Amino acid sequence: MTRLKIASWNINSVRARVPIVGRFLDEEQPDVLCLQETKAEDKDFPAALFADRGYVHQALNGQRMHHGVAILSRIPLEAHGRHDWQDNGEARHVGVQLPQGLRLENVYVPAGGDIPDRNLNPKFGQKLDFIERMTRWSEDLKEPTLIVGDFNVAPLECDVWSHKALLDVVSHTPIEVEALGRLQQAHGWVDLGRTFVPAPERNYTWWSYRSPDWTKNDRGRRLDHMWASPSVAAQATAHKVHEPCRAWERPSDHVPLVVELEL
């Protein structure tokens, strides 16, 4: 049996957050770290930050100033792959095979703009289409898989600070929630965040930079997720949201998630 600790974090520019990324790795010591919104081309990615800490196996899919995902690992990574679920070349996915037979997929779903209407806001349509392409992929998925990342959807009423206030706000609209529900059903994905912190308990992963005091207002949303194939979910022993990272110096507006598996 192998114990694995896998972390996921929308870092909102990896080069701007080098100190806190290093601190998180030193304190938490995950075996694998998945990053979203790295905002760096592969040639500009701070690979040494990770290699110096033993994360010498790296799968990168970067893009200048926008998007970008990366998987950094202390264990070998095989069968690197990229899906263009955005269908426009944006760097929003990278996947690998771990030696234990686990497929690990790292995804950054588009935010979707401000207006929840695909006719008035093409970005919202792109987001829904992205999730639909993930759904079609999930239907044919046979490998035991863990998919992590910033899904940019808070699906449950208790996943936001105010369900009533956010019903018409992109990330919590009924059409997005329904789309994410179809994605979950397509493979029987198990939402590890709500497996270990059952609804309706408070469980947020994102707080806006616009809030003058995020701790006082606590206007959070659960936008970041870890979903597992049923067989993988049965091997999960712990899941944690590292909320204190939101208060670190020059933080991301998202915080890391960590799952522990016994494979």
Rank of each mutant, 00 (worst) to 15 (best):
L49G: 06
R92D: 01
R92N: 04
L120E: 14
Q97R: 14
E90H: 14
H93E: 02
P30K: 01
D31Q: 02
G68R: 08
P122A: 06
P99E: 07
E78S: 11
A48W: 13
F24T: 08
H80W: 08
P116M: 05
Q86H: 11
K39D: 09
E90Y: 08
D42F: 06
G89V: 06
L104P: 08
L120H: 12
P46N: 05
F50V: 07
D44G: 03
N88E: 14
Y108C: 07
L104I: 10
P110I: 00
R74S: 02
D26I: 12
R92V: 04
Q29A: 14
I11E: 03
A59R: 04
F50A: 07
K43I: 09
Y55E: 02
N61H: 15
V107C: 06
L102P: 09
P46R: 05
L25Q: 06
E90K: 13
A51M: 10
I71Y: 04
V56G: 08
R92I: 03
M65A: 12
A91V: 11
F50N: 06
I11P: 01
P110E: 01
S73G: 07
E28L: 12
L33S: 02
D84T: 05
K43C: 06
G81C: 11
L35Y: 05
M65C: 02
A16Q: 13
D31G: 05
Q86W: 11
L49M: 13
N121S: 13
F45G: 11
R103C: 12
V56Q: 08
D26A: 15
L72Q: 07
V94E: 08
G89T: 08
D52S: 13
V21D: 00
H67S: 13
R17S: 01
E41P: 02
L33Y: 00
R17E: 01
D26V: 10
E105Q: 14
L35P: 07
Q100M: 10
R17H: 12
N106C: 10
K39Y: 08
